[in-house]
């Protein structure tokens, strides 16, 4: 790999350290180059889109944007349904429908339908059996967090040198 130069070394100490490190590495037969698998270039090229880079990048960006919009829409719909369910259970089931007009109007009926559809989403949470499970669920979440935290904090090199 011949593309470097070293003329910017400006102090003797740096020069000496740099040279000493090169000699030390040589003692360990480094820097050594490893040969990639013979089919690696072919595999790389097989992954490259057939369209020009700008078009390929635009396609990917469009797809990412669409995914973001869809995810956002799903979150909004779910949150709205849950809110309607809560409103239907704790308040007046016909409230949302009345906001959209009378119960006999088309929009009002859609509102009513949504409230009735959302109620089963909220009801299980109010089940006393499920609330008893809550501490257990919290403990499991705590253990999962602790596991994740410990795994994350173990430096990779420890795992490797451990072998």
């Amino acid at each position: 790999m011949e593309y470097g130069n070293h003329h910017e070394l400006n102090t003797n100490e740096e020069l000496n350290e740099d040279a000493a490190m090169r000699r030390l590495l040589m003692r360990y037969d480094q820097p050594a180059s490893i040969v990639p698998p013979p089919d690696l270039s072919a595999r790389i090229l097989a992954n490259i889109p057939s369209t020009p880079p700008v078009v390929a990048a635009a396609t990917v960006h469009r797809r990412q944007r669409l995914n973001r919009v869809l995810s956002g829409a799903i979150v909004v719909v779910l949150a709205s349904l849950l809110s309607l369910g809560v409103w239907g259970i704790f308040g007046d089931s016909t409230g949302p429908a009345r906001l959209l007009g009378s119960l006999s109007a088309d929009l009002g009926q859609i509102g009513m339908f949504l409230v009735l559809a959302a109620k089963p989403l909220v009801l299980p949470a109010l089940n006393p059996g499920l609330s008893l499970l809550a501490p257990g669920v919290l403990i499991i979440i705590g253990i999962a967090w602790l596991w994740w935290y410990l795994v994350r904090s173990v430096p990779i090199q420890v795992l490797h040198t451990g072998t």
């Binding site: 690696l40 595999r43 880079p53 990048a57 990917v60």
Partner: peptide, 17 residues
């Protein structure tokens, strides 16, 4: 390293402009 090389070249292609 093999997986990374493939991903790197894909990134390079996408960002070539």
């Amino acid at each position: 390293a093999e997986d990374a090389v493939q991903e790197i070249f894909l990134k390079v292609y996408m960002r070539l402009d």
